[in-house]
Write a protein that binds this DNA or RNA. Structure first.
Lengths: 339, 339
DNA sequence: CTGAAAGCGCTAACAC
DNA sequence: GTGTTAGCGCTTTCAG
């Protein structure tokens, strides 16, 4: 680090570099943008000046000049970070590769209304937006679209002019699961509703209904329960007093855990008397005893693929498939006996 | 929404608003910045034009003009999002209030070196930075400081010219815990090392050592184990074959769970034969059976307080205490009998 | 109270 | 190859 001590604070600009290197600012610009036309000696002079001065291009000024910020907005639901975290990790890794920055926004029900987030997003002039929300309001999407900004929606199947989506076919997952159980003569199946993810819940229910219908049965075992773990747990403890399903399907890991704990504390043996399957897989599933069987939604990939898709949209590349459906697996652990 | 349909894409600028309202752009600027000096009728004209055109100020241009972006950089370690998520939530809520945007960066060991992140941060010209990392390199901090950008460090006690920090006194927490146990005649205490958080680990060890020293004992029971849950779990299962501590203290929730599972699967009764305490508390602690006793580090507050502190630094307000130590609590659950 | 004009730091034609 | 210059959209003196 042989950096001259500049006086307090003053950020060094392209002008100063130009003067230091005794060239015009255009040349400096060419160098920092890797233009091929600069002659080698000139380039060296400039690069020397840059490192001598510790110059870093001002992305804001670049953004203004290019009408391009190389940053994308990310909107995620608050709180449920253990799962969303994986999505974000995938997203950031890819963003890094393509040199995009991420502006993070969270939706917390009630407190931050979506409108105000969309407002911030628009003002910040990001090049694109990735929304991970179970229930995007058409309202906010259309607001975003008015500004003609490319959007990728995660976990919701939608697409149109400037919108792509990446998701997992939960309906099919649950359909297959239920079918398998029904074929084995097990038909007392319940699905735990997830208020924070209404859309996912309804996909789960649809999958169950379809499977039941094919077996000439009717599915109507949605356990509608309160919001978070504690209330869910207590609700279920009560509920299981007079409901003993053979299979219970839950969305998030914490819900599956609540089911498991409530069942066992009511003396219901898992998996002998009741089997449990989670949809979302986090590391906690295998830390429980018994370990909870679950689908493994590829959360990291959900993020990575979304970001990659967005970069394509931003480069105006041709997109073969605007609705990308990712594969899931089923991981059989200790709360199931049939699989 | 009575918004005229503008042609594709063209973002409306302050000039267009000015023309539409038949005033100068300076006046429009005054209006959007809430300047008091604009006469009411003029203001109305402008506001009408703004909503008619659906104008949103370009934050990038504002940023350039003001040399101020109203956005802050956030640097967090990758992955461990279930805990970090809470910190981020707190941070975002406060950021929202003070109208700051967050640019999210993650450090993933090996892949993204800190230098390149610092580089991005500087280029993006954020007004300030919040770093949540157990082990900030002095190198990167000093780089940031060269650019004279205010920094808040979470979970590490540091402060200087442009740096503040917010943390929890883990050393004291462990000291108190150990003291209590030692006073009760329990001295076979072990601390599980956390490779991802070396600094935290060393604070834990120091606390233990101090307590032991006061009882004229010497502490040297650090369980040095591999990185993630699975290997930790297997390592511990082996380890517990010939080590049966009376109290085991672990940092993250997943580690405490690994300890619990490994112990029980080796036939060690918890808490009768072995007690377990976690440092970080997440909802998963109380989903385990037995529920894991732990300190509750106020993660949300860690984020919220940090952001608030940063806003003060950015407003050049006087900061009474540059090193903010947050309170913790101990939550007694089912893996301890003494507390 | 409002308008004109000079930047903020950089890019991209367009000259030379 | 390299320099000149006109913006990108907004804020802020400084006049009037």
């Amino acid at each position: 680090m042989t950096q001259t001590n500049r006086k307090k604070s003053r950020r060094v600009t392209i002008y100063e570099v130009a003067k230091e290197a005794d060239v015009s600012l255009a040349t400096v610009s060419r160098v920092i943008n890797g233009s091929e036309v600069v002659k080698e000696p000139t380039r060296r002079k400039v690069e020397d000046a840059i490192s001598r001065l510790g110059y870093k291009p001002n992305a804001i000024a670049q953004g203004l000049a290019l009408s391009k910020t190389t940053s994308v907005g990310l909107i995620v639901p608050e709180a449920s970070f253990s799962y969303v975290g994986q999505v974000i990790n995938g997203l950031l890794d890819v963003a890094k590769i393509y040199k995009y920055n991420i502006m993070l926004h969270t939706i917390n029900e009630g407190i931050t209304d979506v409108e105000s987030i969309v407002d911030d997003v628009i003002k910040s002039r990001v090049d694109g937006v990735i929304v991970y929300s179970d229930r995007i309001t058409d309202r906010s999407i259309s607001l975003l679209r008015q500004y003609n900004i490319p959007i990728v929606v995660i976990s919701n199947r939608v697409s149109s002019d400037n919108i792509c989506s990446v998701f997992v076919d939960i309906e099919k997952a649950i359909y297959e699961l239920c079918s398998k159980y029904l074929s084995n003569g097990i038909s007392d199946i319940a699905v735990v509703g997830d208020h924070r993810n209404i859309n996912t819940t309804s996909m789960m229910l649809e999958g169950a209904r379809r499977a039941f219908k094919e077996h000439d049965l009717k599915f109507d075992n949605e356990i509608r329960k309160p919001k978070n773990y504690h209330t869910t747990f207590h609700y279920l403890k009560d509920y299981f007093l007079d409901h003993k399903h053979q299979l219970v399907i839950a969305n998030r890991d914490s819900q599956a855990m609540a089911v498991l704990n409530a069942a066992r504390e009511n003396g219901i043996r898992v998996p002998d008397e009741m089997e449990i399957v989670g949809v979302i897989d986090t590391k906690y599933n295998s830390m429980m005893r018994p370990q909870i069987s679950s689908f493994s939604i590829p959360s990291y990939d959900l993020g990575a693929v979304s970001m990659r898709l967005l970069t394509k949209m931003l480069d105006a590349e041709e997109i073969a498939d605007k609705e990308k459906c990712l594969k899931y697996l089923f991981t059989n652990r200790q709360t199931t006996k049939i699989y």
